[in-house]
Simulated scan of single mutants.
Amino acid sequence: MRFSWNVTGAFVIGGAMSLALAALVYPGALGAGTASASSDPVIAQTQWGPLTEADRDFVVKVRAAGLWEYPVGQIGLQKSTTKAVVTASRHLVDGHAALDTTCRRIAPLLNITLPNVASPQQQAFVFTLTADSGDQFDADFANILRMTHGSIFNTVAKIRSTTKNTLVRALADQANDTVLDHITVMEKTGLVNFDQTLLKQTSAPTLPASDLTPPPPSFGEPVVVLTPPPSATSTSVDIGAITAGEAGGGAVPGSGSTTG
């Protein structure tokens, strides 16, 4: 199957473009359900605060995003014909390696199972960009990634403003900075078609949940690691400082209530 940003309808997988990361949840076998918009069920009480379905799904979304955007960044470093897209590719690899480290550190603490493979929709994005070349690659790269990052940006803000879990809040802080950075570098390529991108970004999803959900790992399967580049500038959350601070009863940044 071939997808192209410039061919009407061909970029769609089974219908209008859905929000790339708007509904990623695991099947019931892994204990993940779709959180209600009106009630956010608490699924576990942890020493870092209650963990809700939305919190857990957010950690999975961040992990799944890295599983396709990190390799796409590596492809961009090899195939792009413009300096701006090469720069954006470096930001993808750097930022998602750091986010992935945080996800892998907090997941076992919160008893969250992480995927090792992106969703079918996300894998289709990788297929598109792998098949592209030249100017088509650069254009698809900038528009696909601007759309997907724009889609997840509001989700990051919602989790950051509502979660009561210190570890999830720390991940949301890091994700907010990373997603905004990636939106910015995509826009700086000068290749983003905002009319098309924003339309696709805000269109209601039409794909089945199976296309939006990363498959669960096989039993005993090693966790895939996204290795930081040698020149990495992004850093993961210092989970040790958070856990040590809470164990000692000290104040932890972002863990208490604030006013104003």
Rank of each mutant, 00 (worst) to 15 (best):
T166F: 03
V168F: 04
V117S: 07
I112S: 06
N176S: 14
K158G: 07
F153G: 02
I152R: 00
D135Y: 10
L129V: 07
A139K: 14
T113R: 11
T184D: 13
V126N: 05
G134S: 13
T148F: 06
R146M: 12
I183M: 14
A175W: 00
L114N: 06
A131W: 02
V156Q: 08
T163M: 07
I144N: 00
D181C: 13
N176M: 01
R146D: 09
S151D: 14
V168T: 07
I112E: 00
R169A: 12
F127H: 14
Q122S: 14
A172M: 04
F153R: 05
Q174D: 02
N116A: 08
S161F: 11
T113S: 10
T128G: 07
T166D: 09
F153W: 10
I144E: 06
T184P: 01
T113C: 07
D138E: 10
N176D: 13
V185M: 00
T166Q: 04
V168C: 03
I183K: 01
Q121H: 11
H182K: 13
M147S: 06
V179R: 00
L145M: 12
H182G: 00
N176H: 11
R160V: 01
S133E: 13
L167P: 04
K158V: 10
T184Q: 15
M147R: 15
D140R: 04
P108E: 11
I112G: 00
H149Q: 14
A118H: 02
I152Q: 01
L167Y: 06
D181R: 14
T166P: 01
V179P: 04
H149R: 09
T166A: 15
T166L: 07
D177R: 01
N176R: 04
